[in-house]
């Protein structure tokens, strides 16, 4: 780890004052479960680390009749244990799947969304795009993207909550660069597929930070998350899916189906949505939605199996959201 300056401001505006506008100079520290490892491996080498741990405003959960506002520094356990999470089964289930006491008690909502990709080429110092994708395509791509991978980015978005939050139409409150600057942004727009090493995988300037996640009231929407996991440990799932559906008179009238661990961003499957809207959720329609989602996949040499997993994850997340048996583990 490179020597660095540590700052622990007490207010949002102080945080902004301490963040540099130049990429790589400062890093925001939330729970540290990802950042510290990256710093130890010298994948990121900030001169200053700005901790959010003392900013009280970032630790609140506030609810009114239209939305729930969750501070970025709320821990995953605090969120899962808060009564508001009852309205959002997809979120609670996604947190339950993170089978690590440490990650759940130390990890924060903001940090979970902003963690860096697990791509082993990135983590071995080859850069986010790993030689513009060449390392992955010619190397070992078993855990890499099966959607949205036409460009140089082959990594997958590692967040385990993002699919659920995108499915639930979450928005982010982003602060900075200046003390009065505030941006409200749909979470799905926050993530991007970088085209060069100069771009990060989310739309956050070096002197901005995520302050809040805003969850609209579900208004009767059902939701669920389903992860295909190799083992019961804290390892990342192979593929995940989250679905949010509004069912009226036995038919789905509105749906959001979002896959995780399959693309450089959370992957909204328009095909799955089109397949399920207008139909009741049954094993057959859910299967058809899974097939529709998988039909546009572009697997790399080693990850065709993930296409099959994507299909299953979509199917099971829809069945689970509708309160039906998934038929598998």
């Amino acid at each position: 780890m490179k020597a660095f300056e540590y700052a622990a401001p007490r207010s949002e505006s102080e945080v902004l004052e301490l963040l540099s506008g130049e990429a790589g100079h400062t890093e925001v520290l939330a729970g540290g479960t990802d950042l510290v490892g990256l710093m130890k491996k010298m994948i990121v080498t900030p001169d200053r680390v700005v901790s959010l741990s003392r900013v009280a405003s970032l630790k609140k959960i506030e609810a009114d009749s239209t939305a729930v506002r969750v501070g970025a520094m709320v821990s995953l356990d605090e969120l899962a244990e808060n009564p508001v999470s009852e309205f959002y089964p997809a979120i609670r289930q996604a947190i339950d799947e993170i089978a690590s006491l440490q990650l759940r008690s130390q990890g924060t909502l903001g940090g979970e969304l902003c963690q860096r990709p697990r791509c082993w080429y990135f983590r071995d110092g080859h850069g986010l795009l790993a030689a513009r994708g060449k390392d992955v395509v010619e190397g070992d791509s078993r855990f890499h993207a099966i959607f949205g991978n036409a460009g140089p980015a082959k990594f997958v978005c590692p967040s385990r909550l993002a699919p659920a939050l995108v499915a639930l139409d979450a928005r982010l409150r982003i602060l900075g660069p200046h003390s009065n600057d505030e941006t409200l942004m749909p979470l799905e727009a926050f993530y991007r597929t970088p085209k060069s090493e100069r771009e990060r995988e989310f739309l956050l300037d070096p002197n901005q930070f995520v302050a809040q996640v805003i969850l609209p009231h579900p208004e009767g929407r059902l939701s669920a998350s389903y992860e295909v996991r190799h083992g019961a440990g804290p390892e990342y799932p192979l593929v995940s899916a989250a679905s949010s559906i509004l069912v009226e008179r036995g038919r789905v009238v509105e749906a959001r189906v979002v896959l995780g661990q399959v693309a450089p961003t959370p992957w909204i499957s328009r095909e799955a949505i089109d397949a399920i809207v207008g139909r009741p959720v049954t094993p057959e329609t859910a299967e058809a939605a899974g097939e529709a989602a998988a039909s546009v996949a572009t697997p790399l040499r080693d990850n065709e199996y993930k296409v099959r997993l994507a299909k299953v994850a979509v199917k099971r997340s829809l069945l689970k959201a509708a309160g039906l048996e998934t038929g598998g583990f």
Binding site: D124, G231, G233
Partner: peptide
């Protein structure tokens, strides 16, 4: 890595073990 010979999962987080 068949290309470079790199040991890809030389890290506890990536080297899968049962729980």
């Amino acid at each position: 890595d068949k290309n470079s010979g790199a040991f890809l999962n030389a890290e506890i987080a990536d080297y899968r073990l049962p729980r």
